[in-house]
């Protein structure tokens, strides 16, 4: 747990938009240890998706250094599972073929991973939909398919951008429990997960740490350690510690959000 998998130092991001430069991130310094589950919360537009893209190497930061697994990130890094804010399924492929896409793109034999793909679809409650086209699925189902796709190659690092955003409350809670299992909550070899969400209870329930970002340009406003016992169960949401921490984070977040309203 001491080893840092992700190490961001003084990361800034300025988009050159047609209407002028947009400062999305400023002075972000964040460390995520191997096997840690860290959630990012923050007001809409504060740069959470931007931050994930920078860590993935999809976009270079305009300032600061980004290190993942001891190497400076300059281009997309292999061995990550990425869940984008939108499902981005290829509309001409069946759900199964979409889940198998990472294998094809990474030059692996997709037929060898068919069983695994079916298992993942089962896990996500999509077993009857393997042969369907994406447009035949609801938004929430598409998002679950995208999650299966990210998990196909069993990556040690998962970057997840509001993966449960389009799900109903019940499915959302079920998927959270599943995610903890996939992460390896009860095992020694855990994955590392950087998880963006708008739901504070979800962040607290899942994470080792909850990082609060301030409104644009996104900065790190607070970093909460979640000291709830693992493995976590639905009951732990009823505990007093859970409620207190959620409230603290909520206060911090609303303080950040209102601070910008005043400034703007």
């Amino acid at each position: 747990m001491t080893e840092q998998l992700i190490d961001l130092s003084g990361v800034g991001m300025i988009y050159e938009a047609a209407s002028g430069p947009v400062e999305a991130l400023a002075g972000i310094s964040l460390k995520v240890g191997t096997g840690e589950f860290v959630s990012l919360v923050g007001p809409s537009g504060c740069g959470k998706s931007t931050l994930l893209r920078i860590v993935a190497g999809l976009r270079p930061a305009t300032s600061g250094t980004v290190t993942v697994a001891g190497r400076q990130v300059a281009r997309p890094i292999a061995d990550i599972g990425m869940v984008f804010q939108q499902p981005i399924l290829l509309k001409w492929r069946s759900i199964l073929q979409n889940v198998l896409l990472p294998a094809e793109l990474a030059g692996k034999d997709p037929s060898a991973l068919k069983n695994r793909a079916h298992q993942l679809l089962d896990m996500a409650g999509l077993n009857g939909f393997a042969a369907k086209l994406p447009r035949e699925l609801s938004g929430g189902m598409q998002q679950r398919a995208a999650l299966c796709r990210a998990l196909l190659l069993d990556p040690p690092l998962l970057l997840m951008d509001e993966p449960f955003g389009a799900l109903d409350a019940m499915t959302r809670d079920d998927m959270a429990i599943e995610l903890l299992r996939i992460w390896g909550e009860t095992s020694a070899a855990r994955k590392t997960i950087l998880f963006v969400t708008h739901s504070i209870p979800e962040a607290v329930f899942l994470s080792d740490r909850v990082v609060v970002m301030s409104a644009r340009p996104g900065r790190i406003a607070a970093d909460f350690k979640v000291d709830l016992p693992r493995p976590r169960t639905i009951e732990c949401r009823a505990s007093e510690a859970f409620g207190r921490l959620s409230l603290d984070i909520f206060k911090e977040l609303s303080h950040r959000a209102s601070a910008t309203t005043v400034a703007a």
Binding site: L58, P76, Q86, I88, L101, P102, E104, L105, A106
Partner: peptide, 19 residues
């Protein structure tokens, strides 16, 4: 976003073209 999807897996240009 679709192209990013391809880049996440370090897919070569021709593969992104084909798939």
């Amino acid at each position: 976003d679709m192209l990013d999807l391809g880049r996440v897996f370090n897919a070569p240009k021709w593969k992104i073209f084909m798939k």
